[in-house]
Design a binder for these strands. Sequence first.
DNA 1: TATGAATGAGTATTCATTCAT
DNA 2: TATGAATGAATACTCATTCAT
Lengths: 229, 229, 229, 229
Amino acid sequence: MSPKQWEVVYAGRMSAAAKQTGRAAPRGRMDKRQAILAAAFDVFARRGYAQAGVDEVAAEAGVAKATVYNHFGDKETLLREAIAASAEEATAKNLAAVERLVDSGGDPRELLEDVGFRLIQCYCDEQSWALRRLLYAELAHLPDLLEIVQVRASARVRQALADRLARLALAGRLRITDPDAAVEQLSALLTGPLEARAEWGTRRLSAAEMRQVATAAIDTFLHAFGSRA
Amino acid sequence: MSPKQWEVVYAGRMSAAAKQTGRAAPRGRMDKRQAILAAAFDVFARRGYAQAGVDEVAAEAGVAKATVYNHFGDKETLLREAIAASAEEATAKNLAAVERLVDSGGDPRELLEDVGFRLIQCYCDEQSWALRRLLYAELAHLPDLLEIVQVRASARVRQALADRLARLALAGRLRITDPDAAVEQLSALLTGPLEARAEWGTRRLSAAEMRQVATAAIDTFLHAFGSRA
Amino acid sequence: MSPKQWEVVYAGRMSAAAKQTGRAAPRGRMDKRQAILAAAFDVFARRGYAQAGVDEVAAEAGVAKATVYNHFGDKETLLREAIAASAEEATAKNLAAVERLVDSGGDPRELLEDVGFRLIQCYCDEQSWALRRLLYAELAHLPDLLEIVQVRASARVRQALADRLARLALAGRLRITDPDAAVEQLSALLTGPLEARAEWGTRRLSAAEMRQVATAAIDTFLHAFGSRA
Amino acid sequence: MSPKQWEVVYAGRMSAAAKQTGRAAPRGRMDKRQAILAAAFDVFARRGYAQAGVDEVAAEAGVAKATVYNHFGDKETLLREAIAASAEEATAKNLAAVERLVDSGGDPRELLEDVGFRLIQCYCDEQSWALRRLLYAELAHLPDLLEIVQVRASARVRQALADRLARLALAGRLRITDPDAAVEQLSALLTGPLEARAEWGTRRLSAAEMRQVATAAIDTFLHAFGSRA
DNA sequence: TATGAATGAGTATTCATTCAT
DNA sequence: TATGAATGAATACTCATTCAT
């Protein structure tokens, strides 16, 4: 992924204030902080936390190294904030996908396949793999990253998904007694196969392959939780 | 994990000849190599590759730092070999679990739950988490690790599992058309929930919780692939 | 930094002038670089390139080791720059000696003996021996040192000397057809005996001994190139 | 100079015993010592003393590293012995050249030019340059090398040369009062120009160029010391 | 706030040397 | 004597962090 592409990705992270004022009106302040965060995630994702140099982050952000320290204090904090920002972004995308899960009457299969496909797309995003790589790698040393990934990201998506499944069950479209259990199975079926297929993030999956995984997952899921099961 | 425990673990790696002769006949040479490999995996797992010092590995193996270099040439090779050895070991345990999957007549549910439970135990092993952590962390920098994890570990287990499921299907215990697809679903159901429940390896799961995951997984699986489905 | 700047810089190293002119105006930055260069030459000369430690250079320069690397990048570059600076300095001294070679009318013997003596003094300078030692030792590994010693040092002195001899010949004081050939003979006669007498730089020569060498050299030279020859 | 050529050079260093018995009758003993010495000089000459590894010497000699230590005790001794052997060899060649300086009646110019040319050839030999490089580089650290080069090599050649010049003077072919002074001038004239012309040993001189240097040197010398001067 | 320069605490790697066989 | 393995001491180079401006 080229630096240019990252800029696009990170453009979405501009502060609410910045967005309101149009493009980048109150420049000179928040801009640098954002640039550093974006560069930091980029570099950490590419090189890994320990192998990444603050020099490199600063260079990619176009600021002096000391400026990075002025803003974030130390490398660890920089990692945490970069991960938090990225996780927030990824979570938002996941939640957007889940929000499409509304009963439209009739067989929910197609609906579930569509949402499943969208969740898989989120999961297979380059940034998403990078995020998981960083979390896996550093969780052992920085246990508080767990709070970020679990409370502020994963759990929120699961909760939202459980809510939607519950409503579908209530509407008689699914036969679910414990929505949390159902979400656990559904999530497993959707994301479990991706590790191997995407070769742990080193291979890009085609849309067709993603859709195939979604279809298989929903098929199994509906055998167990479909209303005609 | 204490050194004593590692010795037990690595005892399995002794050459056939050594096992036969009783007390490690060709000692004095391979001993040090094994000690280094064990220490290396231990330290890399604890600290992460980049943060781990070769000093520390040498100290834990009870040899001089230069001896590590005599045997492995550089730190990267040491990582590769340590990972390969550990992956081999983990794979062996997984295969042993899969081998129990033989039709004993009647309802396969209990059998599947037992094997599922054992596979989950393998997955939740401390060493297993450490291995996945290292792989996730370094796969981006050392792409050839993929071969180790995929070809020499993951794929072999999947293949073995597919074989057994095929035989159960042949015996009329399951209703499977594509064994590979069935394995994909089963694996996902067994391991998918563990990430979150074990908090990405930072929390130990009780046997009861593991069994619960197994039961839920097999239940869903049998809805989709059971012969009465 | 351009070569021109270096000349200026190094002129300043003979502190007397610099101190007189005021208070070291552009201090603070160049100071450290100079201190490192001086220390580097010193240490390399004492210990030899390979045996010298960058630690030692830094300590002698009164800076941190990393500062040395900030300025010069690596040990090899440090050697090159230290040698170049020292060679420049030595060349300046040689040229100053040659410049005294102006016809004052009458027999040139005394004049030549005086200049010869001064050149021998340059050659026997401690720094001069150290420089030749380093060059001899490292020329095989760092062939670009040749350019420094030949083009920027030795050749310039020879050229200047040839010019002066040519003018003396033109004035009828010497009988020279090829000034370059004459310089070659003269240089050989002046410096050739010093190797053995100074025991390859390990022994200090007295002024009397240097003068004796000069006298003998000029005597032989005048037999071959004197106007009455 | 290729490794093969070195073997030829060093073949001449076989022990007297070996020579007597024909070719290499008492093999297995002295052979290894010689091979190590030859390899040592080769490696030291190529890499410099500090940069050369005992490993490399052992490998080039075809023995184990420990064998080198069995024979020579430590690296420094190895250097000394290798240098001594090489210096002895070079001295022998120089003496052989000097021995040709016998009065054959008439003008000694041609005779002197021939001997001068031969001495220049010795001086420009690859091994000779390597030897001087090593001596220059290490003389500061290992002062006892001085004894080798001065007493056992340089002085002997000078002495022999002085003897021959004295006899020529006695025969009326030269007009010399102090033979040592005459040798000093002659040596300077012969070897002085070579440093610059051969670019400190990095360039090979053609026979024509060597002869030219010899001719010029002898011409100057005879102006000063010829009997018709 | 932003920066260029400086630094102290590392860390991977090498190598002369020793020892058991 | 010859060797393969082991080692302790050394060393070039890096990097997170600080400080003066």
